[in-house]
């Protein structure tokens, strides 16, 4: 009899610390949608300037790309500054992508089929780097539970692309820091449920206004063996005052 009571208590305690309990509690506190709205508030860049370094590694070889970028809503302008690509610029205007060639001082429209390809040969696609819509505009969410990532308590949220939206990935699994509302890990899936990429945040930083933002991110394309790309943000200015004309075709001409 005593054994039965102990066993029941054990099962109950396991349930309490497991996702089942967490779901009940979390659902009572914040919905998945509300969590993701908080994430968007934190991570969506309304108008920002960023300096970053991209370290691409594959089978023991490494190459480094450096760039700065301006983002304003769904438009962005990125310029590479490392010697090999110095002056090469990408301009995203809505769904259109333009590339500027510094040697010829001319820009060419990039075909839509290139958007899924690795940007500058990295694990980040053009879509990954230039995704500019709020996640809450693109996906429906469901709270799955909570887990601990690198010592931080996280919400685990699954996201499925809305039917009427052209999202980069059909499905995502997202780990969100419960205190800072910053994404710590993401898995990207195809429509068939296959794991395509994993993104892990190695470092987050607090910016003025108690705003946390990831400053070192590692992207790993699971369909390519032994490769990974690290994106390090060296400088980030939120609410940077970008003139209307800065992110435009005129700037590149």
């Amino acid at each position: 009899m005593m054994k039965k009571v102990v066993f029941t208590l054990l099962i109950l305690s396991l349930f309490l610390v497991s996702g089942g309990y967490s779901n009940c509690v979390l659902a009572a506190e914040l919905t998945a949608e509300e969590i993701m709205e908080r994430v968007d508030e934190n991570e969506y860049l309304e108008s920002a300037r960023m300096e970053a370094k991209m370290i691409i590694e594959d089978r023991g070889r490494e190459t480094i790309k450096e760039m700065y970028s301006y983002t304003k809503g769904e438009n962005s302008l990125s310029e590479f500054t490392n010697p090999r690509d110095r002056g090469t610029r990408y301009l995203k205007l809505g769904d259109d992508l333009w590339m500027y060639f510094p040697a010829a001082e001319d820009l060419v429209s990039i075909s839509g089929h290139m958007m899924r390809e690795g940007m500058m040969g990295s694990d980040f696609s053009y879509e990954d780097i230039m995704e500019s819509q709020r996640l809450t505009e693109l996906y429906n969410f469901e709270l799955q539970g909570e887990e601990v990532i690198n010592g931080r308590d996280t919400y685990v949220v699954s996201a499925v692309a809305r039917e009427d939206k052209d999202a980069s990935y059909y499905q995502r699994k997202i780990w969100i820091d419960q205190e800072r509302f910053v994404i710590l890990k993401e898995e990207y899936f195809s429509t068939g449920g296959r794991l395509l990429k994993v993104m892990e945040v190695k470092e987050v930083k607090e910016f003025p206004g108690q705003r946390w933002f990831p400053v070192e991110v590692v992207m790993n394309n699971k369909l390519k063996a032994e490769s990974k790309t690290t994106l390090q943000i060296k400088e980030l200015d939120f609410d940077y005052d970008i003139p209307e004309s800065k992110i435009s075709l005129e700037t590149l001409e």
Binding site: S111, H113, M114, R116, E117, G118, S190, T191, G192, R194, L196, K197, N221, K222, L223, K224
Partner: peptide, 17 residues
């Protein structure tokens, strides 16, 4: 014309461009 696709990989991801 220009076109790109993925050989290998899965459903347009990974593989060789």
């Amino acid at each position: 014309i220009d076109y790109s696709w993925i050989v290998g990989g899965y459903n347009g991801y990974g593989g060789r461009q």
